[in-house]
Amino acid sequence: MNFSVVTSQFASLVLQGVALGLIYSLIALGYTMVYGVLRLINFANSEVFMVGTFTVLFIQVTVLGHAVTREPMHGWPLILALALSLIAAMGVCALLAMLVEVVAYRRLRAKGANRLASLISAIGVSIFLSESWRIFTDSRPHAGPRLLEKWSFGEFHGANFRIDTMMAIFASLIIYMVLLRFVNGSRLGKAIRAVSMSEENSLLMGINLNRVVTLTFAIGGLTTGAAAFFYITIYENTVFNVGFNLGIAAFTAAILGGIGNLRGAFFGGLALGLTEQFASAIIGSQWKAVTVFIVLVFVLLIKPSGIFGEAVQQTRT
């Protein structure tokens, strides 16, 4: 146990934990949105994230021609390149998530298939995507170019307020706020909440169920795509199975916060990011996963539905 690092690096661990946690949160929102509506876990979401990371690399390296060895960009070209990467990742992930819904869920739902069938078909899509990318890339890791020079706003008690970290934190907060507002305030958001409360009643009210479900998958894809963009911006690398560990972490975050609950996914991700950082620092990196799952089991023992409990769509928060 090394508690001295907590005193000297407390602010740094918090900052890094928040940044990592918010990436988890964005992916967790993908899981929770789908669960909120269908009461099913979209296991392909981790591969949607993986495809998002490769999309960012494709845009930056192939489309923009920014090789790994090139110097960072500056000014408007940088802003446009980052915006294009973010939009492309979100767009591709949203489209892929909608495709997953059509392929793995819609037909089975229409035929009234067992929920487990949808679960297995989602796992099938996940394996298909992961293995396709493994073959396509020879399982090799891919480095991302450094578009954004990692300058710092300054240091505070060991915490380095780097541009990439701060961008990920603030953009994630904005995305979360926009999503909350959309789900709670918009007509489509209300439709999503209505479907999550009762599919039958929603149909009676004239809500197009397929449209709402597809939209929900698309929103999950959008947040997951944003997570992929921030992941590449900070860590600058990806590999065909990058989604596995992050997907497990995000799924854990969603469960920790209360699956189906937007606030739960958000704060669950934050809690997980911070727990991982402090567990690694105090106990050691080899105990990180063990600590996280001990915390998860402990929380679920006390509150089986997660920290924030039932679905936010039902509580209209």
Binding site: V5, S12, L13, Q16
Partner: peptide
């Protein structure tokens, strides 16, 4: 296969 090394970096700096 770890993705995030920031906590190790913090420890090394400290």
């Amino acid at each position: 296969g770890t993705a995030d090394y920031s906590s190790v970096t913090s420890k090394i700096k400290a």
